[in-house]
């Protein structure tokens, strides 16, 4: 039996290439099935179009206009918005801050997640193992504002846990969120804490697909184990590593909530001190919704969009050379 072809959906067209016959192909789809299909995708399609694809296309348009959303007036200004943007030192600073943030958070998170995944790998079968895996993952599902509150306390220069630990280790005290030097690293620590569980779980999923012997070879201690890990395990999990790095990069390039809450507390407006934590997302938010410079914010959004696209493509390009797909 041609069981593979028996579902109502076996491909039914003819393969002739010209357009007329392609139109004729539509007749091969059952009409009711087509209508029902469109009816069923319509609700989600509307959401995606109106709230995501529509705005994405709209962004292209508004970046090149000077406009006022409330008056609904707009004039074409070409790249004017981008020129204004280029003359804003704060814009360049925000890009630098974002770059600094991404370049530290992504490698640290990825390495930490890989380490945790290796540590927790066979934990499911051990007493309390499931609990440790759950606890590592737990921060990722917690609400950012709620957990930022406790981290704001941890980073409190006088009574916080962080400085208490430093004191205990006989290390110098740090101003954490109050210090222009340490504010962004503080946010980084929060971000690593909040997201590493997700990447750990992704790595665990990747590791679970490996043949058992491969991991046992790498389990041996000492040089041979390390060699086996580097030469066998790492290449085998490179697809998942690539996915983790890509996801982490794209996510951290857009960090907003923890910066807004952690730096907007007792130490002045968000992004401080001295704009040391003003990243691209925060600047877009402030420009658009605090200062109502929508044209400028659109131009920034456009830049961010292109940057993220570029990062994705570059990483894909590198991955095509390095990632080993089975």
């Amino acid at each position: 039996m041609m069981d593979g072809d028996l579902s109502a959906g076996a491909p039914r067209g003819t393969a002739r290439p010209n357009i007329l016959s392609r139109l004729g192909r539509l007749q091969h789809y059952a009409l009711t099935e087509t209508l029902v299909g469109y009816g069923l995708i319509l609700p989600s399609l509307l959401v995606f179009l109106v709230f995501y694809y529509g705005p994405a296309i709209f962004l292209l348009y508004i970046s090149f206009f000077h406009w006022n959303i409330f008056a609904n007036r707009s004039t074409f200004v070409g790249i004017h918005n981008f020129l204004v943007l280029a003359n804003q030192p704060l814009f360049w600073q925000s890009l630098l801050n974002t770059g600094y943030y991404v370049l530290l958070v992504v490698p640290v998170t990825t390495l930490l997640a890989l380490g945790l995944a290796l540590l927790l790998r066979e934990a499911r079968n051990i007493r309390g193992g499931g609990l440790s895996q759950a606890l590592v993952f737990l921060p990722h599902v917690t609400p950012v504002v709620a957990t930022s509150i406790i981290w704001a306390w941890i980073f409190d220069p006088n009574f916080g846990l962080a400085n208490a630990v430093l004191r205990w280790l006989h290390l110098p005290q740090i101003g954490w969120l109050a210090s222009a030097h340490w504010a962004l690293p503080s946010v980084m620590i929060y971000t690593v804490w909040h997201s590493v569980g997700l990447y750990t779980v992704l790595f665990l999923a990747g590791l679970s697909t490996l043949p058992k012997q491969v991991l046992e070879a790498a389990q041996m201690d000492g040089a041979r184990g390390w060699l086996a890990f580097r030469r066998i395990v790492l290449p085998l999990i490179s697809p998942i590593t690539f996915f983790v790095i890509l996801l982490a990069t794209i996510t951290t390039m857009q960090t907003f909530s923890q910066i807004y809450t952690l730096t907007g507390g007792p130490h002045g407006g968000a992004g401080g001190p001295a704009f040391s934590t003003t990243t691209d997302s925060l600047l877009i938010y402030q420009t658009a919704f605090l200062y109502l410079h929508f044209s400028l914010a659109s131009a920034m959004s456009f830049v961010l969009f292109v940057l993220i696209l570029a990062v994705t493509l570059v990483q894909k390009f590198i991955a095509d050379r390095m990632v080993f797909y089975r």
Binding site: I62, F294, S301
Partner: peptide
Amino acid sequence: LPQQALLVPQYVV
């Protein structure tokens, strides 16, 4: 789609 880059046009919509 990068969510942060869409907020402004989403707000307009």
